[in-house]
Amino acid sequence: MDGQDAQVQLKVQEKAPVDWAAIDPHHTLVLENRHINNFLKTTVDTKWSVRWNLGLTKLIEIVLNGVAW
C-alpha cells in the first residue's frame, strides 16, 4: 500500500464479514475535516435508514440556515 495513491483496496480474510468500517476513529489525522464520509456500514434497514437520512438532512439544513451567517 502506498499513501501517495488516491485509492487503496484492503482485503481481510476472517471468519465473519466486515459489518462496518471507520477511518481514523480515534482522530489521529487532525487535518481531516470531513468526518462524515469516514464511516460506512454494509447492512442497514434500508427503508428506515433512508427515511431518517432525509429527515435529518432537512433538519440540518434548517439548523444551518438558521444559524449560519
Binding site: G3, A16, V18, D19, W20, I23, D24, E32
Partner: peptide, 11 residues
C-alpha cells in the same frame, strides 16, 4: 496523511 488507520468491525 502519514498513516491512515482503518478500523473494521466484523459481524
Amino acid at each position: 496523511a502519514g498513516t491512515v488507520p482503518i478500523e473494521m468491525h466484523l459481524s
